[in-house]
Amino acid sequence: MFSKRLKLLRLNKNLSQKNLATYLNISPSTIGMYEQGRRQPDQETLQKLANYFNVNIDYLLGRTNNPVPLDSSDNNINHNKEIDQKINDLIKEVEKTDGLMFSGGPMDEPTREVLLKMLRTTKDMAEKMNENNKK
């Protein structure tokens, strides 16, 4: 899983193996071996990769499908938003972002459309239920 995630993250940033290797201060062939699953990085390199791509290590290793670091400042900012605003933000993010990942792989267009429809329906249903509960 690590090899696939590393390669997808690198490609999504339009980075060459050489550029990533330069940032990590390792050889490009080491990046190639990581992406082929022939070698695993040490803890320090994993942390550098997680920081560089702004994902958590568990995501890199395939132990979670949530790439967002637990201490992300975005998470802390979002705690005070109302859920309807969070859903609106998520809808906008899904609409505008190319190369989204879902269940460890790239999300195809039909899946994206179903996800958007479900998010909008969920928001509409919650609004109606909330209105009915206020009466």
Rank of each mutant, 00 (worst) to 15 (best):
S103C: 10
D42A: 06
I31E: 01
T45Y: 09
E127H: 13
N19K: 04
Y34I: 07
I83C: 11
N14A: 11
E131H: 12
Q40T: 15
M1D: 11
L24T: 01
N130V: 02
P106K: 15
Y34E: 04
S3L: 03
P106F: 15
T121I: 08
K4Y: 15
K48R: 06
L24V: 01
E131R: 14
M1A: 14
Q36T: 02
L70N: 07
N88Q: 14
R39E: 09
R120P: 02
D74C: 01
L46S: 09
L116F: 09
G104R: 07
K96M: 11
N76G: 00
N78F: 13
Q85N: 14
S73T: 03
K7D: 04
N78S: 13
G62R: 04
E35W: 03
S29E: 00
Q36H: 07
S72Y: 10
K134N: 05
L6I: 12
N65S: 09
L8E: 11
D89G: 14
D89Q: 15
L119F: 07
D42Q: 05
E44W: 07
E113N: 12
K18T: 07
F102G: 04
N51K: 05
S29D: 00
M101Q: 13
A50W: 07
M125H: 12
K86F: 08
Y59K: 08
T22I: 03
L8K: 06
R63C: 05
T22A: 06
L119E: 10
K134P: 02
Q36G: 12
G37R: 06
E44G: 03
D71E: 01
S3A: 13
R112I: 01
N88L: 11
K18S: 09
K48P: 05
N51A: 05
N54G: 00
K92I: 12
K117G: 08
Y23Q: 06
D58E: 14
H79I: 14
A21P: 02
R38D: 10
R112C: 06
G105D: 13
P41N: 10
G104Q: 07
Q43W: 15
R112P: 11
P28F: 03
Y34H: 01
K18Y: 02
S73E: 09
T111I: 12
N130K: 14
G32S: 11
K7M: 07
N54V: 02
Q17T: 04
T121F: 08
I31H: 02
N80Y: 10
K117L: 12
I83R: 15
A126K: 12
T45G: 04
N66I: 13
L11D: 10
G104S: 08
K13N: 12
I26L: 02
H79T: 12
A21E: 00
R112Y: 04
D108L: 05
G105P: 00
T111V: 10
T64S: 05
D42I: 09
K7W: 05
T45C: 07
R63V: 09
K7F: 03
P110R: 11
T111R: 09
F2I: 13
F2A: 13
Q43I: 15
K86I: 15
D74W: 12
G37E: 13
G105W: 14
